[in-house]
Structure formats: C-alpha cells, structure tokens
C-alpha cells in the first residue's frame, strides 16, 4: 500500500502519448487481473462453490479444526516472544553505540534472506538425533522435533526480524530526548519504557506484530521440515492444505485455504489502517 496522494507525483513530468499511456494501463490491468485477482477469487469460488454448508463441513472437519487450533497456538506463543525481542533489540541498537552494531543488525535480518526450507533443515540438524544438542535433549527426554516446541522454534526463526524492523527506524527517527528527560526527572527504566517509549512506538509495534503474526500463521516450508506432519497432531493449517491436496480432497483444501486467505485480507486492511494512522 503506498502513496496514492491527491495529485500524482510526477504529474508535471511530460507524459507519453495518450494512446501509449492507455495501452500501458490496459496491459497492467489485464496482467494484474489475470495473475493476482483471478487466483484470489478462484480460492473463494472453489471453497464456496458447493455452498456454505459444504464449506462449514470442510472447515469443521476434525483434522482441519485441529490444524486451526495448533496454528493459532503457535501464533499466540510466537508473536509476544518476538515482540519482546523486537523491542529489546531496537532499544539496544537505537539507544546505544557499541562495536558490531551493524553486524548485529545483519544477524537479526538473516532469517529474511534464508529460504525457510534451509531454516527447517538447520533446526533439524541442530535438534535431530545426531545434531549438536539432539543427544542432550534425548537424555533429558525433551521432545523438540516433530512436536510443538520444534514448530514454535522454527516459526520464531522465520519471523524474528519483523517487529525489530518496524520499531527500530521509528525509535531512531524519534531520538532519545524524551527518554533522557525522563531520566533526569528520576524515572526508573521500567517507567520510562511504559510511559514514554511504549506510547511512542505503539503503532509500529502493533504493525510489526501483525506482520509477524501473519507470517507465523502462513509459514509452510520451515514448519513442514520440523513438524513431521503427524495427522491430527503436528499439522498446522498450511500443512493441512497440502495434506488435503495430496489426499485429492481439493474442496477441503480450498476451504482451509479460504480461511487463511480471509485472514490475509484482514491483515492487509489492518496494514492499510495502521499505515494511515502512522502518517
């Protein structure tokens, strides 16, 4: 969602001939309709094609229902943890100078440049039976892989940078004068955070949390490696879609997909609302 202000930027720039411009707009509209809009509509057409009753039946299928519950649980754990991490990282990086700041930033952003599948493989190699900490976990009888902890950990990895990315630029732009003033007035660290910092960053924080949550709910590749895909146990909603697809239950797959698509559309609306709010 970007700036489509009242007067188009570049309105003063010389324009190509009317015909050329129309052809470009036409091409853009046709491609976007065919490539983006139609797939979006197709999801709902297939999910609701057999009527609302069939859709409800497919969503209320025990496997799909369990997947929805597990996915929600993962998001409920992952989002607060990454919000806390995002705030801590942004505070450390925005408010203090220390050697290796840039390196730390690069490290935090690594999950965005690593393919989720590779992330999953990394986790499997770390926590697997022959991995670095695997034998140690086995001795303690802790089950990480092919269970909830593994799914949560790999989702934490994939979504780690989201909150920090939104909060850090804002903290840097706002500067630390207000917080320094609070210090001179004798406020404690916690008071500064709650009364000064948090109100200042709340929209960016919320925005980052929404993006983090959306990704946590939709993650497929990384989770598929560590979940073990045990039916009725470690299937998140995106994995359930693939399971139903492979079982040739296409309508069921589309019903599950429609749930995620509705969620994605809600996220887009929230995103637009928050972007307007932040301006």
């Amino acid at each position: 969602m970007s700036t489509t202000g009242t007067s188009a930027p570049g309105a003063l720039a010389p324009r190509p001939r009317r015909g050329v411009e129309r052809a470009l707009i036409g091409l853009a509209l046709v491609l976007t309709a065919g490539f983006v809009l139609v797939p979006l509509l197709y999801i709902f057409a297939r999910a609701f094609g057999a009527g609302w009753g069939a859709f409800a039946h497919n969503v209320l299928d025990p496997g799909t229902l369990h997947a929805i519950g597990l996915t929600a649980l993962v998001a409920v754990i992952v989002v607060p943890v990454n919000m806390a991490f995002g705030i801590a990282a942004a505070w450390a990086i925005a408010r203090f100078r220390f050697p290796g700041r840039k390196a730390l930033l690069t490290l935090i952003e690594i999950p965005f440049s690593i393919s989720p599948i590779i992330a999953g493989i990394c986790y499997l190699l770390l926590y697997g039976r022959n991995g670095l900490v695997g034998p140690w976990l086995m001795a303690l009888d802790l089950k990480v892989l092919f269970a909830l902890p593994g799914i949560v950990l790999v989702t934490l990895f994939v979504t780690a940078p989201f909150v920090m990315r939104e909060v850090l630029p804002l903290m840097q732009a706002q500067g630390s004068e207000q917080e320094e003033a609070a210090v001179t007035l004798g406020a404690s660290g916690w008071q500064i955070f709650r009364r000064v910092t948090l109100p200042n960053i709340r929209w960016a924080l919320l925005y980052g949390a929404v993006l983090c949550g959306a990704r946590a709910v939709g993650e497929f590749g990384a989770v598929s490696v560590v979940s073990g895909m045990i039916r009725g146990q470690t299937m998140t909603l995106p994995l359930q879609i693939e399971l139903l697809f492979n079982d040739l239950n296409i309508v069921g797959a589309f019903a599950a997909a429609a749930v995620l698509t509705l969620l994605a559309l809600v996220v887009l609306v929230l995103k637009a609302a928050m972007e307007a709010r932040r301006r």
Binding site: I43, A257, L260, A264, V267, L268
Partner: peptide, 20 residues
C-alpha cells in the same frame, strides 16, 4: 490495483500454490 500488489506477500505460499 495498488493494494493487489501486496497480495502475494500477504497470502501464505501454500495457499498461492494450491490456487495456481
């Protein structure tokens, strides 16, 4: 149209794969 440009990032990849 501008908002539609964000759909591919908002949509979980499994959903996109299924639809396509």
């Amino acid at each position: 149209v501008d908002a539609l440009m964000d759909i591919p990032f908002a949509l979980p990849t499994a959903v996109a794969g299924l639809a396509l």
